[in-house]
């Protein structure tokens, strides 16, 4: 497995969620340490990269941002291919954006068709917690965590891209889970076949 160390590790992360929940803002806050209410609506896709240290490894994270209007979901297959982690974002001030997480998750699994869908790493972000000092909030943390637990223990973060709240720690967790997935995908490669090997279901929530 020595070859893996010499190869530059590139992690592909996809951010999904309804239009206007703050996908582009989260990505920009994390990568560029900037917030603007003036991002262009994303059509097709865009991405930013960031070098991250995960334990002793330096990896490049390629974070992909896509259009959020529902009708764009059908184009997903092109963008999701080869993803190592999928970030699902909703707006804590909008019930609808939370309910749609089911759809985004399903669509992702179908279109990305990861080799091990049951263990594919997702991370959920409830964004815009700063809005109106929390008074306009409609989705409770409890409700969101319940959903994450029901989906096999998805790590959950409450964030504000605007106030830079929890954004770094969320993406640290995303990087860690993506790296774990990438490594496991490589282990599935049958260059050495271990007849006794069994797929061990992994817990995603180790870092949070």
């Amino acid at each position: 497995m020595g070859a893996r160390q010499t190869k530059r590790t590139l992690l592909k992360v996809i951010i999904l969620g309804d239009s206007g929940v703050g996908k582009t803002s989260l990505m920009n806050q994390y990568v560029n340490k900037k917030f603007s209410s003036q991002y262009k609506a994303t059509i097709g896709a865009d991405f930013l990269t960031k070098e991250v240290q995960v334990d002793d490894r330096l990896v490049t994270m390629q974070i992909w941002d896509t259009a959020g209007q529902e009708r764009f979901q059908s184009l997903g297959v092109a963008f999701y291919r080869g993803a190592d982690c999928c970030v699902l974002v909703y707006d804590v001030n909008s019930q609808k954006t939370f309910e749609n997480l089911d759809n985004w998750r399903d669509e992702f699994l179908i279109q990305a068709s990861p080799s091990n869908p049951d263990n594919f790493p997702f991370v959920v972000l409830g964004n815009k917690v700063d809005m109106d000092e929390g008074r306009s909030r409609v989705v409770t943390e409890k409700k969101a965590k319940q959903w994450c637990t029901a989906k096999g223990g998805i790590p959950y973060f409450e964030t504000s891209a605007k106030e830079d709240l929890n954004v770094d720690s969320a993406f640290q967790c995303i990087a860690r889970n993506a790296l774990k997935n990438e490594t496991e995908e490589e282990l599935y490669m049958p260059d050495t076949v271990d007849m006794n090997a069994q797929a061990i279901p992994k817990r995603n929530s180790s870092c949070c």
């Binding site: 059509i43 092109a78 291919r81």
Partner: peptide, 19 residues
């Protein structure tokens, strides 16, 4: 590279190159 036209050209055709 697994890079199909959807990645490159979706906005070309939906925004007629304006973006």
């Amino acid at each position: 590279l697994g890079c199909d036209m959807t990645i490159i050209a979706t906005d070309w055709f939906l925004c007629l190159f304006s973006t």
